[in-house]
Simulated scan of single mutants.
Amino acid sequence: MQRARDEIAQIRDGATGSVSLAVSASFALTVLPAAFKDFHRRLPAVEVQFSEAVLPWMLARLRDGYLDFAVAHVVPGTLDPQFEALELFPVQLVVGMRNRHPLRGARSLLDLYDAEWILPGDDHRGRDSVAPLFTPLGLPPPARIIQGQSVTVALALVGNMDLIGLFVEPLLKLTFKRHGIRRVEVEEHLPMLNVCVVRRRGQPTTPAAQHFIECIQRASLAAAAP
């Protein structure tokens, strides 16, 4: 009902209503500020609700109608058909561990496979929820996984414990040094992820949400420009 009221209000005057979206941590630290500045300048009266989350949480909230859209890292070809994705730009996955981790000299994922990992996942699906991160490498998920919905928590734990994490490359420059984390240069080619605007297929997009998506597209293009 709230979505219907928003659509009526936005059609009526084109400048009010609300938008609820979730974004990844790296997107929040890089592209989002420029996108929101653009959006807020054009539609200052629209109420915006932000959440920072990982993909499993986003999909659950899109499914129940809580979010208008999300900006997430998606493994190509793995998104459930009930969702649709608008690709923005690619990002590389990197392996991270604390600077003094006992396995810091490893150069292959096989050398790290028996270690304990912390990865974004869905508790209800267990290890299957992180399988798309390892399937392109021909590997099942590691046996020892701590699952979480917060990149901030993952960074803090990896920086202080003998855990291994997978992070997107923008976080390497933004946060690794501060948390005492190093990149592990493994010989395997880690999968690229697509940063995408994700929506529930068939769900109408309100005028304000569509305008925000267009601001995100412009900011993404500007960020990718040489």
Rank of each mutant, 00 (worst) to 15 (best):
R127M: 06
E187V: 14
T206E: 00
A225W: 07
G77Q: 04
S18L: 03
F83A: 12
A222K: 05
S20K: 11
C215R: 01
H211N: 02
H101V: 10
V168M: 00
S51C: 09
G159L: 01
H211W: 03
P191K: 00
G17I: 04
R61M: 05
I146M: 07
I213V: 14
D13Q: 13
D111H: 15
F69W: 07
A45Y: 13
Q49S: 12
F50H: 06
D38E: 15
R201W: 13
L112C: 09
R178C: 07
G65S: 04
V197Q: 05
V130W: 09
R125S: 13
Q82F: 12
A28F: 13
E116D: 05
R182N: 08
R12M: 08
F36M: 15
L29G: 03
P207E: 14
R5Q: 13
R98G: 09
L55C: 08
N194I: 09
G65Y: 09
S150Q: 01
A22K: 01
T30W: 03
G65T: 14
T205L: 15
E185K: 09
K177G: 15
R127G: 02
L163Y: 14
V184H: 01
A34R: 15
L174F: 13
V195K: 01
H189S: 06
G138S: 12
V71A: 06
S129V: 03
L29R: 15
V91W: 02
V151N: 13
P136K: 00
R3S: 01
V184R: 01
E169L: 14
E116R: 15
A222P: 03
P81C: 06
P33Q: 11
G121K: 11
P132L: 08
L110F: 03
L119S: 01
I11R: 14
H179A: 04
